[in-house]
Design a protein around this nucleic acid. Sequence first.
DNA 1: CCCATTTAAATAACAAGTTATATATCATGT
DNA 2: ACATGATATATAACTTGTTATTTAAATGGG
Lengths: 176, 176
Amino acid sequence: MVEDVIKALGYATLGSRLRRLGEQLQTDAQELSGALTGQDLPSPQNSALAALVRNGPLSIGDLSASLGQSQPGVTRMIGKMKSADLVTAQSDPSDGRISKIHLTEHGAARIAELERLHWPAVEQAVAALCEGLQGSLLEQLSQLEDILAEKSLKQRALEASPKGIEQTPLTTRTPQ
Amino acid sequence: MVEDVIKALGYATLGSRLRRLGEQLQTDAQELSGALTGQDLPSPQNSALAALVRNGPLSIGDLSASLGQSQPGVTRMIGKMKSADLVTAQSDPSDGRISKIHLTEHGAARIAELERLHWPAVEQAVAALCEGLQGSLLEQLSQLEDILAEKSLKQRALEASPKGIEQTPLTTRTPQ
DNA sequence: CCCATTTAAATAACAAGTTATATATCATGT
DNA sequence: ACATGATATATAACTTGTTATTTAAATGGG
């Protein structure tokens, strides 16, 4: 058994640790979603859909700010979402540089499904995961890592509520 | 002003949020390190060097477990570190499949510098950042995001201790 | 009115992670 | 002792993030 260096170094490697845990959570959440809806939506596209349904059509720049990631990254993601017929771009009549991203009918339908099945389930499962966390950030991260290592998010969620999961509409939620 | 969707959605997008914050912290820490040592070491290679100086020569597999990332990822990173003359590979005499990764003289020297300047500074700066965090995981993350947005890790660290920063050797630290 | 600057998005090149698969060596059972 | 299976690493292809640069459109000063 080798030690977990990232964990052992504490604050010196907090960035790597957050990133590592975040990647795992994203993967786990996507798996859970796949099990629930039968379809697979890449995790970053989830947030983009949420941004659009919450705020209406947005420019690439607004999406970039809203998701907290670089403009070229958003441009590429939107390109994929266009190919998947989730969104379309319409250039702004009052400013030709701006490309407003709209949901397609298919995209809106997909969101309805996500709101019914995916989003509340993931939120509930992750909230349950975090329920008992206590102490400093490092301590809470260790607890979270241990919990996740023991049993996957998907397993937990499916055991906790194998059938329907009630919904809280994402559109009306306020930032915390 | 557009809202921060990842933040607004709370537990539903915790994975993305951890990842995003982790990436920022890694970048910030690398910048701080650059300012202190004049050299730039990619953040993941830092952890690999730490693993090697703490545990001695390790196989690719051990490194993979120790860093908590996939074997092919480690193989590629070690390839870059070989090119940078930080490590060398020696195949294990008792098992030809195993490739033991050793520090080069240059790698060891580099680590000595990191132990003197980089690692304690980053640890101290990040610890200071996290000092006042309170509440649930989401609350602590929000606080951390706000603190970092206000002033970069590098700025803080250089202001707090513009000259020398005392060291606590990484090799003798115990996992928390 | 036109040139210079600014701004929005697109493109290119790179980094660092992933999974799936191939290759090479070791271990084992008959 | 050799064929079979297991294990360690390497390779390939992909994802998703980044920065730097290019292109196209809008704005503003002279």
